[in-house]
Amino acid sequence: MASPNEAPRLRPLVAVPAAALAILVALACGAAFGETAIPLSTVAKTAANHLFGAGFAVDPIDAGIVWNYRLARAVVAACCGVALALSGVVLQALLRNALADPYVLGISAGASTGAVAVAILGVGGGLVSLSAGAFAGALTAFGTVALLARAAGSGASAVILAGIAGSQLFNALTSFIVARSANAEQARGIMFWLLGNLSGARWPDVTLALPVAVAGTLLCLFQTRALDAFTFGAESAASLGVPVRATQAVLIGTTALMTAVMVSLVGSIGFVGLVIPHGARFLVGSRHGRLVPVSAVTGAVFLIACDIASRMIVPKQVVPIGVVTALIGAPAFALILIRARRMT
């Protein structure tokens, strides 16, 4: 019989393979399901051919759909889910606010404004990438919200109200840029992109999204003790030896970077950073040593599932993924709020 000290050591041996298996299954489903179903065996053979040079006989059309379109799209969706879910976890801990996430606090709106300014206005003269513009916009939006919250007073309500005001401000700036400077074709493309669009995701996007998602996850895992301390307030964190300002700067910068990169690739997607952390807390509690990895895996699987739904709920038409996440996330968050009220 295993001793009490042995059980915690065995859990990672089960949890890590289980998490990897869940993501692999989700990626396989993302590549198999869509407008036309492709057998999972074909997906596996196609992946083996490209990754290991296996040489399986696969229909060229099916192989092209799986590798060049669906699998790359599923990987980007997974990275986006990881980044947004972890951003929600970090912001909720730092601000001690259950409603904090990149969308509510205006970070996503600011990233959209920065990306549109680069794409439409040509800010930077071609020397600034879309992701860099989105990052600058995200930091500007968060700084604006922080200043508004400080001016409005302390408390969770001040932060949320400042976030709503900041979101509206930067959404208005984005709409103004599009209306003022974009032609009709650009305006249609930007408006569809702002609702969340994975249709253009390809392998070059994976080379940007995957390193950012992995690096962000590793940094959040490294800071789990600090996040636990911040849930009791900045003063408590300082008393426990956490370098408060430096840690806040690193975590907020990481959150802004992850959000900016994902917005620059797929547009603005709401509710992932808000709902997934709450769902993960329901499963594993509030200790960030478990909350961070579970939120990352759940976010990846959730957004892949939403992407599959976006391609299947309307025949011969792709629904923006932001619409799907809102249709699922809004009722889920309402249930979370009702459950929380009953427990108080």
Score class of each variant (00 low, 15 high):
204 P>T: 03
158 A>R: 15
49 N>W: 07
307 D>K: 12
126 G>V: 09
102 P>V: 00
83 A>M: 13
302 F>Q: 11
339 R>T: 10
295 S>Q: 06
47 A>I: 15
59 D>A: 09
156 A>Y: 03
106 G>N: 07
248 Q>V: 14
203 W>E: 13
102 P>G: 01
152 A>K: 06
128 V>R: 09
14 V>R: 14
223 Q>W: 04
48 A>W: 00
341 R>G: 10
18 A>H: 00
274 L>H: 11
205 D>I: 00
127 L>R: 14
275 V>Q: 08
298 T>V: 14
128 V>Q: 06
199 S>R: 09
16 V>Q: 04
183 N>V: 01
98 A>W: 01
120 I>N: 13
320 P>W: 13
148 L>F: 03
273 G>R: 11
153 G>W: 02
273 G>H: 06
140 T>F: 02
31 A>Y: 06
178 V>Q: 03
295 S>W: 02
321 I>C: 03
311 R>Y: 01
290 R>F: 12
192 F>I: 12
99 L>W: 05
44 A>G: 11
147 L>S: 13
24 L>P: 06
46 T>N: 09
7 A>R: 15
28 A>M: 15
294 V>Y: 07
209 A>R: 07
8 P>I: 05
274 L>G: 12
225 R>Y: 05
241 G>T: 14
264 S>R: 09
103 Y>G: 12
86 L>Y: 01
313 I>F: 04
341 R>I: 04
240 L>K: 12
253 G>A: 03
88 G>Y: 03
87 S>F: 01
261 V>W: 00
316 K>I: 03
174 T>I: 08
197 N>I: 01
38 I>F: 01
73 R>A: 04
97 N>W: 01
116 V>R: 11
152 A>I: 04
48 A>I: 02
80 C>A: 15
271 F>L: 11
43 V>Y: 05
310 S>G: 08
301 V>S: 13
22 A>I: 03
287 R>H: 14
31 A>W: 05
143 G>I: 09
322 G>F: 00
215 A>F: 04
236 S>M: 07
175 S>L: 10
236 S>G: 12
80 C>K: 10
6 E>A: 15
312 M>H: 02
65 I>F: 10
219 L>K: 05
222 F>Q: 13
128 V>D: 05
215 A>Y: 00
233 G>W: 00
151 A>M: 14
109 A>C: 08
326 A>P: 10
30 G>D: 11
106 G>A: 11
301 V>W: 03
332 A>K: 05
48 A>K: 05
326 A>E: 08
49 N>Y: 07
160 I>V: 15
199 S>Q: 12
308 I>M: 04
160 I>K: 14
2 A>H: 12
9 R>M: 15
312 M>Y: 04
257 L>M: 14
327 L>E: 05
